[in-house]
């Protein structure tokens, strides 16, 4: 196993990016950090800068304003990096599929590793998704 991947198993640092969401997924992500759910036990911490992150958590419907910025941020993440799409909007644009400002879903723009459905997904679902991601890292 690649030493860089092995190191990630216990210390995935997370950068959270909202590409035009309604806040709900973002708050549930924050909720995961607080005492009841405490995602830190999997070694996950929010990273202050994109350049320290191993994992991009992307919420929202990828509107025109954010797509270019998101691509630029994605290019700046040190490799290996993983992308998790959280919530219905990031998966398929959900309710905003007919909106003039949300041209394409997230996985047409950048590759996505784990999808967590829900509007918003419960913190339990987010944690389950993260554990699946860890499995994926382990088997890589």
């Amino acid at each position: 196993m690649d030493i860089r991947l092995k190191a990630l198993l216990k210390s995935l640092w997370v950068y959270h990016l909202s590409t035009g969401s309604c806040n709900n997924c973002d708050i549930e992500v924050l909720d995961c950090l607080t005492p009841r759910y405490d995602i830190e036990r999997f070694g996950m911490l929010p990273a202050g800068s994109i350049k320290h992150a191993d994992l991009l958590l992307i919420t929202g419907s990828c509107n025109r304003q954010s797509v270019a910025r998101m691509k630029r941020l994605y290019e700046q993440v040190p490799r290996p990096c993983f992308v998790v799409a959280i919530g219905e909007c990031a998966l398929s644009r959900g309710m905003f599929i007919h909106s003039y400002n949300c041209p394409q879903p997230l996985d047409r723009i950048i590759p996505v590793d784990v999808y967590i459905p829900g509007c918003p997904p419960k913190p339990e679902a987010i944690i389950a998704g993260m554990v699946k991601l860890l499995e994926k890292v382990k088997n890589k």
Binding site: S18, G20, S21, G60, S61, N63, Q65, S66, M95, F96, H98, S99, Y100, N101, C102
Partner: peptide, 23 residues
């Protein structure tokens, strides 16, 4: 502001009164 624009007012006008409640 404007990074979060999703065109909700227009979307609401494309849906029925009942559906708009969810949007």
């Amino acid at each position: 502001v404007g990074y979060n624009h999703r065109g909700i007012e227009k979307l609401s006008e494309m849906k029925t009164f009942d559906q708009s409640t969810f949007v």
